[in-house]
Each structure stands twice: as structure tokens, then as C-alpha cells.
């Protein structure tokens, strides 16, 4: 569904990605792991068309459409949803308004996400639907960021560290919800620092190394067992 080939990205003269190859198949959850500063967020930004970074070389294709060179809004309309790092909800809008702004009718044949369905999915958001997003707790903002991405009715969801800065209880809720999304056959590219969360959800794992390339590929159980890889590439 998504294929990244030989992707090279840079910020000005600083090169970050030096030829990344990865594929995400339909209905799959691919976890992208790696230490801080390896370029995980850069890869996510490149996929959804945000600038910077500049794409120097390589291609990103989504359902046979070349994404490099397209504008962010065009990529979003192709069905790529994005949950940015650090949540980034619209603070001066209410929860409901955040979802209304995001809502986009579904493409053919998928079970549609309506605002009501987002509220069923995250009942906490329904309770706070008239609150300004800036007054929400961190966990609620994360739910809203995910809900907002779902309201665009994506077919591929790119999530950048949904676990960042969350209390353990909230983390549990998010984890459970992500599992449910996976069963709903949504394709997910999950960028994570939290190894436990990533391994419990992912079908496949890739690790981004310090040379700006994918240095490890395999199943979650394989990575769990591979002490050497964990130590070398993830520092755990």
C-alpha cells in the first residue's frame, strides 16, 4: 500500500535519511523504531508532504500514486491521515469543532468514521465535546489528535509517538484503542519510542539506525528475542 524506496532527506545541508526502504501492506501495522534523532519524524513528515525536510532522492508511492512533489493537502485527500508528534490540536476550538474541521466523507467501501463514531470510540471526548482543546489533559489531547485524524476517514494512518508523555493509565487506553483500529483493518505506520507498546501492536517492525537507513527488519517476537539488536540500535 505504501512503498518508500531509497528515500534521502535533508534539512538544509544536514542529511538525515540516507536511503530508506520500507513497505507497508494493506491492513498491516508497521512499527518504526529507532533512537532519538535517527530521523523517524523526518520520515513521517516526508510521507505526509510537510516541508522541511527536502526530499533529495527516492520515491514514496501510495496506492501507485507518487507522493513526492505533492502538497500536504493533496496527500491528505488521498487518504493518508497524520497524528503529529506532541498532539498539536487546535487549542482555541472545542473538541467538537476540532472534529468538525477535520471531518471528510469516506472514500469508497470503507466503514465510515463519523463524529459520532469517534465519540463512541473515545467516550471521554464525548464528555468533553464542548471544552476548548487547550483545556484538555495530555491524554485527552492525544485522543483528540487520533480522533481528528480518524475523522478524515484515512486508509493509512501515520502516527508519530502517540505514547509520548502519557500517564500509564491513559497509555493503556490508547494501546487498547490502537488494537481495535488494527482489527478494523486500518493500515498503520506507528512511530514509537515505547518498545512495549510498539511490539504489542505491530505485525512487523523496522528499526532506523544511525546511518540513516533501515538496519533491522523482522517480527515483534524476533526483536523481543534479539538482545543484541535491541542493545545496538535501541539502547535497551
Amino acid at each position: 500500500m505504501l512503498a518508500v524506496e531509497n528515500l534521502q532527506c535533508s534539512y538544509g545541508t544536514a542529511r538525515v535519511l540516507e536511503g530508506v526502504d520500507l513497505t507497508v501492506s494493506s491492513g498491516e501495522v508497521l512499527a518504526l523504531l529507532g533512537r532519538n534523532g535517527m530521523g523517524k519524524t523526518t520520515l513521517a513528515r516526508a510521507i505526509v508532504g510537510m516541508k522541511p525536510p527536502q526530499i533529495r532522492e527516492g520515491s514514496i508511492t501510495y496506492r501507485d500514486v507518487e507522493l513526492t512533489g505533492l502538497e500536504s493537502h493533496q496527500i491528505a485527500r488521498l487518504g493518508v491521515g497524520y497524528v503529529p508528534q506532541g498532539r498539536r490540536v487546535f487549542g482555541s476550538l472545542t473538541v467538537l469543532e476540532n472534529l468538525e474541521v477535520a471531518y471528510r466523507p469516506p472514500r469508497d467501501g470503507q466503514q465510515p468514521w463519523t463524529i459520532e463514531r469517534v465519540f463512541e470510540f473515545f467516550p471521554r471526548l464525548a464528555e468533553r465535546s464542548n471544552s476548548y482543546a487547550r483545556n484538555l489533559s495530555g491524554g485527552e489531547q492525544q485522543m483528540l489528535a487520533i480522533g481528528r485524524a480518524l475523522a478524515t476517514n484515512p486508509t493509512l494512518l501515520v502516527m508519530d509517538e502517540p505514547s509520548e508523555g502519557l500517564a500509564p493509565v491513559v497509555l493503556g487506553v490508547i494501546k487498547e484503542r490502537l488494537r481495535e483500529l488494527k482489527q478494523g483493518e486500518l493500515t498503520i505506520l506507528l512511530i514509537e519510542q515505547n518498545l512495549g507498546l510498539a511490539l504489542s501492536i505491530a505485525d512487523r517492525v523496522v528499526v532506523l539506525g544511525s546511518d540513516g537507513k533501515i538496519v533491522w527488519t523482522g517480527g515483534p517476537d524476533e526483536l523481543r528475542a534479539d538482545e543484541q539488536a535491541k542493545r545496538r540500535h535501541l539502547g535497551v
Partner: peptide, 23 residues
């Protein structure tokens, strides 16, 4: 919705872009 999206523009243009808005 137009006005709400306008407020979104004030807060962050890039966030609106990734939601599919041609800002």
C-alpha cells in the same frame, strides 16, 4: 465550518494542510 477552519489557520497552517485543507 469555514470560520472554524480559519481559526485553525491562525493556530497552525501545517496542521490544516495535513488534514487535507488547501490553505
Amino acid at each position: 465550518p469555514f470560520g472554524l477552519a480559519l481559526e485553525g489557520l491562525r493556530e497552525s497552517e501545517s496542521r490544516l494542510l495535513v488534514l487535507g485543507y488547501n490553505t
